[in-house]
Design a protein around this nucleic acid. Structure first.
Lengths: 349, 349
DNA sequence: CTGTTAGCGCCTTCAG
DNA sequence: CTGAAGGCGCTAACAG
């Protein structure tokens, strides 16, 4: 077994005190150049490895940022990527606790991670219950909540303009000449789902259109649910376009159109929300509302880092804008406006 | 600031010694029932949180398993999921270090993580260089390598039957009556890519067929590369089927067929390798060779856990079999065998 | 510029 | 069954 090399051993080898060695190895002032060299050399030769445990014990810090998210979901994964990429350039490491198969155990996860495992926490959880929020406050660790499902939480949080994004997407279809537009919503308990639907509804209303109940369906946030609900809606009500509250739903809707022997966008246009990587990696490319997921993750990381510095959370509420990305899955309805049909595959990221 | 509750405080509150409290709280023998009750009660009331740092300092363990993988890649992500799910039921936590934007910095990652951050390591990296392997050996931490790109490494590793899987997939196309079969390979430096191609080649050879160079292309492991190479190959050589060394390539190939105004599987059959979740979440479903990615991750976790127990790595070389999953993307060639065409979307898995 | 002292929270060892 | 001493490796806070 390779013995652990400690400061004391280097001290012994060089003849200096442990403290001097510690100072040198941590780039602290108070050490002559000649001492620095000797110590550095000895440390390298002996293969010194600092003990993070001992450091933590002293400083009460682990250097770990925890994130609770569902990495199984491409949406969550993108945000995690942002967090990772940002943390890369710091001295913090990321501890991922994926809650993909234990929804609702947020409390236990938060409890465990804040028992001294992590210095700070990024949360992206479907439902944040009051006890969990209380625990979070009690533990007094830096926290950022990304895309909270409730908006009345008094913790630093990162949110996105769901309403405006969806309104713009709907306007795009209206501009193309669509009037029979269906809507596939995500889980209704999520505030973001309701916000998105409001954006859709308002755009329709301002165009003098109403949304009949048969052109609205609530889905689970997955491909299969989008597929099934779209299939049902198209067979029954023949919309010329479908707006979806998430890209995964849109992917399902596109395949539902195909399964009925029709084409996207010739027979039915489809719009998504998120702009997951898959949205551009498909044929035709998916017209969708881009959320800057990666940026959101980065900001989350920067915010907790800043809180750890004692600089504060940057801001309490960070709102990101969305962008409409037009790809091949939308076009004018048959016999409608004759906007050029761009069905080329887009490799744009 | 919530003060950290320590053993000493509980000792003071109950009148017992620190040691007795420690014994109770760790379910060690040597404590009367009445003592146990009193101590447990006090601990609960004061909200005791054990300090992992202090424990680690003593025991030299952090309770963390590190994994180095590219979670950006759905393939890697599936394995990570397996590791997570297995670790869930243990007292180990997972520290993920994603190398998606720093390929080749494996050495630094291994170095950092084994500096006392993690007790054990799961590795899934594209290229494992000799210095990294040496470091791994030197650090003497339990390690498992999943899907190593080189097979001459003398560390516990998890491998998959690439050759057999691809041979079976090719046989499936031959059985359907295909003879003009193209092959899209993944990066040639990976041993697994070469193994898969061997499986393809041998199946063809045994059927009395040869693979002309224009029906073989080497791709990057991504959608765009599959799309481009398939488009070129189909335009130039008109194969009736394409076998791909990865599902991501196959997804690209399917869209390439569509981009040329043709259909899958009517005009061109497509076969993948991996069976990523997306393979069944598409229309038509992708016929592919399933690797038990989740199981592989689970076994990796179990192996390092077992090494940490001192029970050893279970085995040095763990070989997983593959399974051919037939979905809608393959059918008999036009005018060929009249096998029933099942183009139904599969929601299996 | 360098060294000494003391203690972070816990657990092993050995006495009561 | 319970307690006292000592130390894991490191670093603040002081001396010299």
């Amino acid at each position: 077994m390779t013995e652990r090399v400690t400061l004391a051993q280097i001290a012994e080898a060089t003849g200096f005190s442990v403290m001097t060695v510690s100072n040198v190895l941590n780039d602290r002032p108070g050490a002559s150049d000649s001492t620095r060299k000797k110590v550095a050399k000895a440390a390298a030769q002996l293969g010194y490895i600092p003990s993070s445990a001992a450091r933590n014990l002293k400083g009460g810090r682990t250097g770990l940022v925890g994130i609770i998210a569902d990495v199984t979901n491409p949406y969550g994964l993108e945000i995690v990527r942002g967090v990772m990429d940002e943390l890369e350039s710091s001295d913090l490491e990321l501890l991922i606790s994926s809650n993909h198969n234990d929804r609702g155990r947020e409390y236990e996860r938060v409890d465990f991670l804040t028992r001294g495992f992590v210095d700070a926490l990024v949360l992206m959880v479907p439902a944040l219950e009051q006890p969990t929020i209380d625990l979070l406050v009690e533990r007094r660790r830096p926290v950022v909540i990304v895309d909270p499902r409730r908006f009345d939480i008094d913790l630093p949080r990162i949110v996105v303009d769901n309403y405006g994004g969806m309104r713009q997407a709907t306007q795009h279809l209206l501009d193309l000449g669509h009037t029979e537009i269906g809507y596939l919503s995500g889980v209704w308990e999520f505030e973001s789902s309701r916000e998105r639907f409001s954006g859709f509804e308002d755009a329709m209303r301002l165009a003098g259109l109403t949304v009949p109940p048969e052109l609205k369906a609530i889905c689970e946030f997955n491909y299969a649910s989008g597929f099934q609900n779209a299939q049902k809606m198209i067979s029954a009500s023949h919309p010329t376009a479908i707006v979806c509250g998430a890209d995964t739903l849109a992917m399902g809707a596109i395949d539902a159109v195909r399964s009925l022997g029709m084409s996207v966008p010739q027979d039915v246009s489809v719009v998504g929300f998120d702009d997951l990587p898959q949205a551009s990696h498909s044929y035709p490319g998916l017209t969708t509302v881009r959320q800057p997921l990666h940026d959101m993750g980065q900001l989350a990381a920067r915010s907790v880092a800043s809180q750890l510095n004692g600089t504060g959370p940057l801001m309490e509420r960070m709102l990101f804008n969305t962008t409409l990305i037009v790809r091949g899955s939308t076009a004018a309805p048959r016999g409608g406006d004759s906007t050029a049909l761009d069905a080329a595959v887009s490799f744009s990221e």
